[in-house]
Simulated scan of single mutants.
Amino acid sequence: MQEFKRYMHQNLMLCIMLCMIFAFTSPCAVAKENSLIRFPRLDVKADPNEAYVLDLLQLILQNTPKRYEYSPTKSRMLQGRAIYEMTREHGDVDMILTMTTDEREKKLIPIRIPVDKGLIGWRVALISPKIKADFSTIRSIDDLRKFTAGQEQDWPDVAILKANKLPVTTSSSFEPLFGMLQAGRFDYFPRSIFEVYGELSNHQEYGVHLDQNIILHYPAAVYFFVTPRRPQLAEDFRIGFEKVLANGSFEKLFLKHNQASIGKTNIKQRTVIKLNNPHLNINSLPLQRSELWFQP
């Protein structure tokens, strides 16, 4: 009988200790998980906007009601895979920065403040030196239809170009596109003002040129998107973003990182070719807030 009592007492003490450990550690673990934002490490050699995005992210997170930390995923992934992870019940990604579409806005929670001020919809062309003379004769969308664009297969731009009856060749990932352009697999690589100069600098070995003749324009925006698993994160992030808009620090940061690219592009000296974007409801864009948009 004495042995039984001792056995029961030992087990009771063990249960109490386990409960105390769980009580003290579990909330901390949950709190840590809820304060961490996991970003996808995207499939690019060097992201030309990384410094801008990280500076902006830091600025916003300094102004959210709750303190958050961000962490890149261990492995690189394509945009499509990152979005899939955000829709899974136990996915590995909490937030992504990407171009908006109606479909993405249905699946995820958009923070409807354009990080790029709409520059993603202003596209200049990277070309091979071999077609420079031919490309300089383009004056209309009909002229452009004689040439083939190159894009990554899961980018929204593929559907936009095709909807405007512009031929497109795709690659399963980003980096091979420069080699494909150099080899003549397609004629031009439309890139936004927001991206192109950093990409040119990072891929000089391919000898591609920036066309000085045309610029494509279609309604578009780059948003932060949050997984539907974390609506409170989305609301906190929106509040933080609105604060940095109101105090002028967003505009200052945007100009610091993008003003030189805008100036070099000489938009007013180019032929503007307007495209429709049938995959984005223009009424979903915050167009009534003129301070959010770039005006050439």
Results as ranks from 00 to 15, higher is better:
residue 241 F to D: 03
residue 12 L to F: 12
residue 70 Y to G: 05
residue 261 S to Q: 13
residue 139 R to M: 04
residue 3 E to Y: 14
residue 279 H to W: 12
residue 66 K to Y: 13
residue 239 I to Q: 15
residue 219 P to R: 11
residue 273 I to K: 01
residue 226 V to R: 09
residue 159 A to Q: 13
residue 139 R to A: 01
residue 86 M to F: 06
residue 102 D to P: 10
residue 171 S to F: 01
residue 248 G to P: 00
residue 53 V to N: 15
residue 4 F to E: 10
residue 264 K to G: 08
residue 42 L to V: 15
residue 173 S to K: 04
residue 251 E to A: 15
residue 71 S to Q: 15
residue 3 E to L: 13
residue 113 I to E: 01
residue 273 I to G: 05
residue 174 F to W: 07
residue 167 P to H: 06
residue 240 G to S: 05
residue 140 S to N: 02
residue 282 I to T: 15
residue 81 R to D: 10
residue 126 L to Y: 00
residue 264 K to R: 15
residue 281 N to M: 07
residue 28 C to I: 14
residue 16 I to L: 14
residue 50 E to M: 11
residue 272 V to W: 12
residue 21 I to C: 10
residue 277 N to D: 02
residue 253 L to T: 10
residue 78 L to C: 00
residue 274 K to P: 09
residue 177 L to I: 02
residue 185 R to F: 08
residue 66 K to T: 12
residue 26 S to R: 11
residue 179 G to F: 03
residue 101 T to A: 10
residue 237 F to W: 06
residue 131 I to M: 12
residue 228 P to T: 12
residue 84 Y to W: 05
residue 64 T to Q: 05
residue 180 M to P: 06
residue 243 K to C: 09
residue 71 S to H: 14
residue 24 F to R: 08
residue 62 Q to P: 04
residue 213 N to R: 14
residue 10 Q to G: 15
residue 294 F to N: 12
residue 192 S to V: 07
residue 227 T to Q: 02
residue 290 S to I: 13
residue 147 F to E: 00
residue 187 D to T: 06
residue 104 R to I: 05
residue 45 K to R: 11
residue 20 M to A: 15
residue 258 N to A: 11
residue 3 E to T: 09
residue 64 T to C: 13
residue 83 I to S: 08
residue 135 F to Y: 02
residue 213 N to K: 13
